[in-house]
Amino acid sequence: MAAKSVPYAELTTLRKRYNRRRLDISKLLVLILLTTMAVVSLFPLYWIFATALTPAASTVKIPPELIPANPTLDNFFEIAKAGGTTTLHLPFVDEPLHIQRVWLWLFNTALYAVISMVIHLVFDSMAAYALAKRRFPGARPLFWLILAAIMIPPQVTLIPLFFLVRDMGLNNTFQGLLLPGLADVIGIFLLKQFMQTIPSELEEAARIDGASEWQIYRLVIMPLSIPALAVTAIFAFQRYWNNFLWPLVITHNPDLFTLQVGLSYIQNGEFGTNYGLLMSGAALAALPMIAVFFAFQRYFVQGLRIGAVKG
């Protein structure tokens, strides 16, 4: 058709104007639909906090209180009691420390997540740098092995790992809880994908200027990888904070439990039907992750994209 052709830019503005006019009804309906889906998706999370703040007597009545009428923190004190108390003998402190286990679980979980995260940041970035930027015999097979390992379900190695850690004498210890998780390879993959995009000229310039190999990694590559390191750190923290199967298998002493294991321990005990109490525990476990999410939201989105790019 040789009719009057519309310039491309004009077509785009026309379409935008047309869309804006059409916005009203159909867009409103879509917005209502999306909001409904979001409300349903968020309801369980909301219900944790609503129930946790509702007095125990009011949780067992019909109709349920959608918004706590008399909000209280009682459930949090109750769950702290339900977990029991333990006595710790700290180094350099003469007085034994009496502490409610729930706070110990919170501490264990944080320690487990933070140590795992820090070690992953150091080791994963080192390996990723070598795999992304350096040529050496064995690099390709190693990378393919790592990629294949991502596919291995953790349940497959669960029992041999349990035996291995037991034979190392680390069953029911914090080291036993910590060590096997450090072999997670997903961070190496994520960081390698990112480091490949850093121009090699930067390293070469540093090398000519006399930087040592360690300095190149530490002073050139690491600072440029901060966005990817942030993503790796957040995902690692989330993975270990929320981890359940391995802590469940390897910790038997209630003083060593993580929050997730402690929660299921309380649920299986005499307070298993006290939902106000259970929800306050769930809230304790969920809150730190929610805070991390709001603080670093854009990194979560970025991380998912880097992960998906491999295609």
Binding site: L42, L45, W241, F244, Q260, M279, G281, A282, A285, A286
Partner: peptide, 12 residues
């Protein structure tokens, strides 16, 4: 909803 653990979500 996906930032908290499955244990937490299952409890609710």
């Amino acid at each position: 909803p996906y930032v908290s653990s499955v244990v937490v979500i299952s409890l609710v």
